[in-house]
């Protein structure tokens, strides 16, 4: 079910913990990455078998943590922080501007599947606010203009 590369990583992870269950969350993140950014029941069942836990347990874990997604994100997943420090320096405005440019609300994906927006709680870049994460990259000290420019660049 996993590609050879991911399976190697999974095996390595399992070997780092005393109990298979301990590797559940890192393995789920790997499985999610492999499955284009989201988890379906088949993925979760597969991981449940690997980690030797019941499927209900995996489902409980997946619905607890915000990074697990149960529907596909866009190609570029824009995770915009609007928490206290970012909020003080324009994080909310940044989010609203992004929603306006892409014509979708946070929690949704554009029709062409290229962009999705997620409103985030503190992402730990407070002194460099406003900050966002695009897929796995941090972009800090943004302004609405810089945001627009970045979205245009990503579209290419």
């Amino acid at each position: 079910m996993f590609s050879k590369d991911i399976q190697t990583q999974v095996d390595k992870l399992l070997s780092r913990y005393p109990i298979s269950q301990n590797a559940l969350i890192p393995i789920l993140l790997l499985a999610q990455k492999e499955n284009e950014g989201w988890l379906n029941e088949e993925c979760m069942q597969h991981v449940a078998d690997i980690c030797e836990v019941p499927l209900t347990h995996v489902e409980g874990v997946v619905t607890f943590y915000t990074m697990f997604r149960l529907k596909p994100p866009g190609k570029y997943h824009l995770q915009v922080c609007t928490c206290v420090p970012c909020c003080l320096v324009g994080g909310t405005e940044l989010l609203e501007h992004t929603e306006k440019i892409l014509d979708i609300h946070a929690g949704h994906t554009t029709d062409d599947g290229v962009f999705s927006i997620e409103e985030m709680e503190c992402i730990g870049a407070c002194s460099f606010a406003p900050a966002i994460i695009v897929n796995e990259d941090y972009h800090e000290q943004l302004t609405p203009e810089k945001m627009e420019k970045m979205i245009d660049e990503l579209r290419q």
């Binding site: 019941p54 209900t56 347990h57 489902e59 409980g60 619905t63 607890f64």
Partner: peptide, 9 residues
């Protein structure tokens, strides 16, 4: 039997 669980947060 682990049929029941708690979900979300």
């Amino acid at each position: 039997t682990n049929e029941f669980g708690m979900f979300n947060r």
